[in-house]
Design a protein around this nucleic acid. Sequence first.
DNA 1: CAATATTGAATAGACAGTCTACACAAACCG
DNA 2: CGGTTTGTGTAGACTGTCTATTCAATATTG
Lengths: 118, 118
Amino acid sequence: MQRQPSRLELLQGTLELIILRTLLAGPAHGHAIAKHIQRTSEDLLQVETGSLYPALHRLEAKGWVAASWEKSDKGKRARCYRLTALGRRQLAAEHSKWEAFSRAMGLILKPAAQEEGR
Amino acid sequence: MQRQPSRLELLQGTLELIILRTLLAGPAHGHAIAKHIQRTSEDLLQVETGSLYPALHRLEAKGWVAASWEKSDKGKRARCYRLTALGRRQLAAEHSKWEAFSRAMGLILKPAAQEEGR
DNA sequence: CAATATTGAATAGACAGTCTACACAAACCG
DNA sequence: CGGTTTGTGTAGACTGTCTATTCAATATTG
């Protein structure tokens, strides 16, 4: 019996965009980012920690986010990430790339009128 | 000087959906499928042969398409692919998965009203 | 006939990014 | 004390796309 995931797998290449977009709402630490994504997507998307932390490290290495150790609400050490100016530009670029891709998919997927009936 | 691709890279996981959708319009061989995708997406998407043929083989192995050797219009040997009944169901499933993912992305990306101004 | 372009299929190997599955630590709570 | 929640992190498997290349048949042109 195979398990069927009710949640979607992330399409590769979208995670960084999602994280950057999430940080636009304000600085946050990893755990909070993951929860925010899940909540905002109405539980459709869930980011695994094995994807999240490597992604955050990549973003930091590229200078799109900056990080510092803080205390979370619950008093735990937490690495707080915030968007840099560079990250803001990157967010805009990736957002529009997503829009273009999404539009392209729409063009291909839309019913092309009287092609199905033959 | 880095080259910047005017075309988008495919998001991993979308190619099989695109191919199945293309074959819904009727049987076709690899080359024709690639051209159709590029044309239909208004040149936004381009499938490389190194992605296309492995994908077609995967689809065939899974029984979602069936293949046979034919002669193309230009008189060349060409492997003609057509959608199977199973492939039709798979297309529907993957299409709706795409819709869900796309919707989730929309939820995350949309301006969340007065979150940006702080 | 030879050279070249076009059509078409195919593979090898690099590579990126997500996943599963862990490990670890600190705080709080019964 | 032991369990749960919160939080960060890594290792390794895996999937699928990409680049780059090969091969072959046909058509065209000199």
